[in-house]
Amino acid sequence: MNGEGKVVCVTGASGYIASWIVKLLLLRGYTVRATVRNPMDTKKTNHLLTLEGASERLKLFKSDLLEEGSFDQAIEGCDGVFHTASPVSLTVTDPQTEMIDPAVNGTLNVLRTCAKVSSVKRVIVTSSTAATLSINPNDVVDETVFTDLSVYLAMKAWYGYSKTLAEETAWRFAKENGIDLVVMNPGNVIGPVLQPTLNYSVEVIVDLINGKNPSNSFYYRFMDVRDVSLAHIKAFEVPSASGRYILADPDVTMKDIQKLLHELFPDLCRVDKDNENEVGEMAYKVCVDKLKSLGIEFTPIKESLKDTVVSLKERCLLI
């Protein structure tokens, strides 16, 4: 139990990745302070409160990304902070208010608190492979690649823009304030869901089952939520961990996912197998040597997909 006696904070704890981080932290013996928008909303928090170890070592805190100082109480006395809270949406009416402010100012809000709490030894921020995008198909993408913000501005791709800008802001603030920051850049995350609602990355699988092709699907790389969550925790636990980590299986593309869905769940898939060539595919390579140095092994994608769909069925989320 690596986490025995240690106290950590997880922001946006009711989210998909964050819920798994909380689950694994509790299993490793950590005491967890979980921030949510409304601790009294049992529909969004009950899955956390019923986790193994939650009754003894989990406490919920009310926090708002845009409210200065609202993370102070949750972070005070913590050894580490996992900042996962950030809006995820591809349909945006007001990009500044809906995406950019919560992502950028929310990250700064959390980091400002971390800077003044002396017990915090390391901060793990969840970014995205959206911040490591290359538009050159011949490139090998690794942790040195930062997406050119002008690309997202031109595309009006506000999620990618907000994640990239938030990460750049985090690095700048951490450097200026002496924070030990590690950033995780996950691709499209799949695997069993703990929360009661459908999240964007798993909705991609639902779309594929329903015969819809997700937008910009040729950029997608996938990784199991259990591996992503463990990678976050290892980034906190391994003293030598530093910088950024791309969390994506380099060998799995959208076409592979579509093909496997047909193999595993032929009765569910509503699209004819001949249509699978409609899904675009990007040729760029992803280097994950750095991630492997944390001791992370990839869950086979077939297993991830199977577990994803089974859990969606259990929660009646296949729509």
Rank of each mutant, 00 (worst) to 15 (best):
N38R: 05
N38G: 01
N38E: 13
P39E: 00
P39V: 05
P39Y: 00
M40L: 13
D41K: 12
T42H: 03
K43V: 13
K44H: 11
T45N: 01
T45D: 03
T45P: 00
T45I: 10
T45C: 12
T45M: 03
L48P: 04
L48C: 11
L48S: 09
L48A: 12
L48H: 08
L49V: 11
L49C: 11
T50W: 00
L51E: 07
E52K: 12
G53E: 02
A54Q: 08
A54R: 06
A54D: 04
S55Y: 03
S55E: 12
E56F: 07
E56C: 11
E56T: 13
E56P: 00
E56G: 03
R57W: 01
L58P: 00
K59P: 08
K59H: 12
L60F: 10
L60W: 10
L60Y: 07
F61C: 08
K62N: 05
K62G: 00
D64G: 03
D64I: 07
L65P: 05
L65Q: 09
L66E: 11
E67H: 10
E68D: 14
E68H: 06
E68A: 15
G69K: 03
G69C: 05
G69V: 07
S70W: 01
S70D: 07
S70R: 02
S70G: 02
S70N: 04
F71K: 08
D72V: 14
Q73A: 14
Q73P: 03
A74V: 01
I75H: 03
I75G: 04
I75M: 12
I75Q: 09
I75A: 05
E76P: 06
G77E: 09
G77K: 04
G77Y: 09
C78Q: 06
C78K: 06
C78A: 12
G80E: 08
G80R: 11
V81K: 02
V81Y: 01
V81H: 02
V81D: 04
F82W: 07
S86K: 08
S86E: 11
P87G: 09
L90V: 11
T91Q: 14
T91P: 00
V92F: 07
V92P: 05
D94P: 05
D94H: 15
P95D: 09
P95M: 08
Q96N: 14
T97A: 13
T97R: 11
E98I: 09
E98F: 03
E98Y: 02
E98V: 09
M99R: 10
M99Y: 10
D101K: 15
P102F: 00
P102M: 02
P102R: 05
A103N: 07
A103W: 04
G106I: 10
G106V: 09
G106H: 05
G106A: 08
T107F: 01
T107P: 00
L108M: 11
N109I: 12
N109Y: 00
L111H: 08
L111G: 06
L111S: 10
R112T: 13
R112L: 06
R112A: 15
C114V: 13
C114I: 01
K116E: 08
K116Y: 04
V117W: 09
S118P: 15
V120M: 12
V120A: 09
V120P: 06
V120Y: 10
K121G: 14
R122F: 03
V123T: 13
V123Y: 03
V123D: 05
I124G: 00
I124T: 06
I124K: 02
I124Y: 04
I124R: 05
V125Q: 12
V125W: 06
